Amino acid sequence: MSGFLILSDVELAGLGITTAEVLTALEAAIAAQARGAVQVAPKSAVLPGDGRYVMTTLATGDAPDLTVVKSVMVSPRNPSRGLPGVEGVVLVQDSETGEMLALMQAGWLTGVRTAGLSAVAARRLAAPAAETITFVGTGAQARSHLAAFCDLFPLRRAVLVGRGAGNLERLGALARARGLEVEIASTPQAALAAADIVVSSVTLAYGMEPFLDARWLKPGAFAAITDAGVPWRAEGMAALAPLYIDDQAQELENSRPMVEPALVSGDLATLVTGPALARDPAARAGFVFRGMAIGDFAIAALALDRAREARVGTLADWRPRPGSDPA
Results as ranks from 00 to 15, higher is better:
Phe153Glu: 04
Leu83Gly: 06
Gly82Trp: 02
Pro128Ser: 07
Arg143Ile: 02
Gly139Arg: 13
Leu101Asn: 07
Leu168Phe: 11
Ser80Glu: 13
Val89Leu: 15
Val68Pro: 04
Gly164Asn: 15
Asp151Pro: 03
Leu83Ile: 08
Pro76Trp: 08
Ala142Pro: 11
Gly164Glu: 14
Val68Arg: 09
Arg124Lys: 13
Gln93Asp: 10
Thr110Arg: 04
Ala158Met: 11
Ala102Trp: 07
Phe135Lys: 11
Asn78Leu: 03
Pro79Asp: 04
Ser144Asn: 00
Ala140Asn: 07
Val74Arg: 13
Ala148Gly: 05
Lys70Ala: 02
Arg113Tyr: 04
Gly111Leu: 10
Pro79Glu: 09
Ala173Leu: 13
Gly162Ala: 12
Gly111Tyr: 03
Arg123Leu: 02
Ile133His: 09
Ala148Arg: 01
Val89Tyr: 13
Glu131His: 11
Asn78His: 10
Leu152Asp: 06
Thr114Ala: 07
Ala115Phe: 05
Pro76Gly: 05
Gly139Lys: 13
His145Arg: 01
Leu152Phe: 06
Ala115Trp: 09
Ser144Arg: 00
Leu152Val: 05
Val92Arg: 13
Glu87Ser: 13
Gly82Leu: 03
Ser75Gly: 08
Ala148Val: 14
Pro64Asp: 02
Leu125Ile: 05
Glu99Tyr: 14
Gln141Ser: 03
Gly88Pro: 07
Ser118Lys: 00
Gly164Pro: 01
Thr67Asp: 02
Val92Ala: 14
Val69Thr: 10
Val112Arg: 15
Thr114Lys: 03
Asp94Pro: 14
Ala121Val: 02
Phe153Thr: 02
Ala173Asp: 12
Gln141Phe: 05
Phe153Arg: 05
Glu96Val: 15
Ala173Lys: 14
Glu131Lys: 15
Asn78Trp: 10
Val92Cys: 15
Ser75Tyr: 09
Ile133Glu: 06
Glu131Trp: 05
Ala130Asp: 06
Gly172Asn: 13
Gly82Gln: 01
Ser71Gly: 14
Ala127Met: 08
Ala122Val: 00
Gly98Thr: 14
Thr138Asn: 09
Ala130Trp: 04
Pro84Tyr: 12
Leu103Gln: 12
Ala127Asn: 14
Leu66Asn: 03
Arg123Trp: 03
Ala142Met: 07
Met73Ala: 15
Leu109Thr: 06
Arg157Asn: 05
Thr67Leu: 14
Leu91Glu: 11
Leu171Asn: 13
Leu160Met: 11
Asn78Thr: 08
Gly82Val: 00
Met100Asp: 09
Leu66Thr: 01
Trp108His: 15
Asn78Val: 03
Thr67Arg: 07
Val90Thr: 14
Arg157Ala: 02
Pro154Tyr: 12
Leu168Val: 14
Ala140Leu: 10
Met73Leu: 12
Arg163Phe: 03
Ser95Asp: 09
Glu131Pro: 10
